[in-house]
Simulated assay, not measured.
Amino acid sequence: MNLFKKFAEMNNLTNNEKALVNYILSNPTKTLTFRAQELADAAFVSVAALYRFINKLELTGMGELKVELVSSLKETQLSVDIDYDYPILESDTPFQITENLGKIYKRTIDETLSFSDPEELATVSQALLKAKIIDVYAASANLFFAQNFKFQMQEIGILVNVPEEDYIQRLSAANSDSEHLAIVVSYGGRGQTLNGVVKILHENQIPMVLITSVQDNPLAKYADYKIYMASIENHYDKVSSFSTRMSLLMVFDTLYAVYFNHQHEKNVHFKITNYQKMNKELR
Rank of each mutant, 00 (worst) to 15 (best):
L57H: 02
L282A: 14
K132F: 06
F145S: 13
K150Q: 14
V184I: 05
V251K: 02
F4I: 06
A49M: 03
L201K: 09
N148Q: 13
Q126V: 15
Y86A: 04
T193W: 00
K199W: 03
R170Q: 13
I109E: 10
N100Y: 05
E281G: 14
N55Y: 04
V184K: 02
A19P: 08
E155W: 08
F144D: 07
A138Q: 01
A139P: 13
I82C: 00
I88F: 03
T29C: 05
T98R: 15
I168C: 09
L255T: 01
N217W: 00
A40W: 11
S178H: 12
G102K: 03
R283C: 14
K5W: 04
Q152V: 06
M229W: 00
Q276L: 10
N175S: 09
V45Q: 04
L25D: 05
K56Y: 00
Y86S: 02
S125V: 15
K132A: 10
D85V: 05
F145V: 11
G191L: 11
V136S: 02
E265P: 15
G102V: 01
Y23I: 06
Y84Q: 05
L73Q: 09
M10I: 04
L113I: 11
L50Q: 01
L32F: 08
M278S: 09
I200N: 03
H202R: 10
F44W: 13
N217P: 07
D253L: 11
H269R: 14
N27D: 01
K226P: 00
T29V: 12
S116C: 12
M208S: 11
T33G: 02
L210M: 05
S72C: 05
A48Y: 02
R35A: 15
T60I: 14
Q126N: 13
S79D: 15
K103V: 06
A43E: 03
K103E: 04
I109Q: 08
N12F: 02
N261T: 10
L113H: 14
V160P: 12
Q96P: 07
L171Y: 10
Y23T: 06
Q37Y: 13
S231Q: 00
S125H: 12
Y259H: 02
S26C: 03
E281K: 12
M246L: 10
P87W: 09
